[in-house]
């Protein structure tokens, strides 16, 4: 990951366009510019389609829904998955190890995990989205409904009748 001005992306020449090694500028909602490889940016289906439509590659992509801290972390993921090969068993194991460490770190800071999840959804980064939503699902897993409500600050609004119905439907509740 490198940071710089939007002008850096404009430096991409024709040869780079063909090889896919162009640099692309992503700008956070705080106006901070992040220059990434095209391969890294293409991890995002949102940016991929804009690049393929011949959109504003030179001007860069403003991301009004993503703050700098979140974008930096998202780019860390995209760099790893976009710029590295995953052909051999070792390479795939290295990526899996990266994912495991990446999500363990996020899991320790739930608010940040949620920000990254929202950004992965907004940018359509499939791998990152699967990773973060699975992490949240793992938090829900094994908890009683009461524990889930406490963990996520959810208001209890079921009536006694609702509860009765659900319990009748399934004895596993």
């Amino acid at each position: 990951m490198a940071t710089g001005s939007g002008a850096a992306a404009a430096a991409a020449d024709a040869e780079e366009k063909e090889s896919g090694s162009r640099m692309i500028t992503l700008t956070s909602n705080e106006g901070k510019a992040f220059v990434v490889t095209e391969a890294s940016a293409r991890q995002s289906a949102t940016i991929r389609s804009m690049v393929d439509d011949g959109g504003c590659v030179d001007k860069g992509f403003p991301l009004p829904n993503v703050d700098s801290k979140t974008l930096a972390r998202v780019i860390q993921y995209c760099d790893e998955h976009g710029n590295k090969e995953a052909h051999t068993v070792d390479e795939r194991a290295a990526l899996a190890k990266f994912d495991k460490d990446f999500i363990a770190e996020l899991d320790a800071d739930k608010a940040f995990l949620y920000d990254v999840t929202m950004a992965a959804n907004y940018l359509h980064i499939q791998g990152l989205f699967a990773l973060t939503t699975q992490c949240i699902a793992d938090t829900i897993k094994g908890k009683t409904p009461e524990e889930i409500r406490t963990a996520f600050g959810i208001e209890y609004d079921l009536t006694a009748q609702d509860e009765e119905e659900i319990k009748e439907e399934d004895t596993h509740a």
């Binding site: 699975q134 699902a137 829900i140 897993k141 409500r149 609004d157 319990k167 596993h172 509740a173």
Partner: peptide, 20 residues
């Protein structure tokens, strides 16, 4: 997120008891 809960028989009934 809920799609990613484990396929144990208790997963979905428990989720439905959280709120409406």
């Amino acid at each position: 997120i809920l799609l990613r809960l484990p396929p144990q028989p208790s997963s979905l009934p428990r989720a439905s008891l959280v709120c409406k």
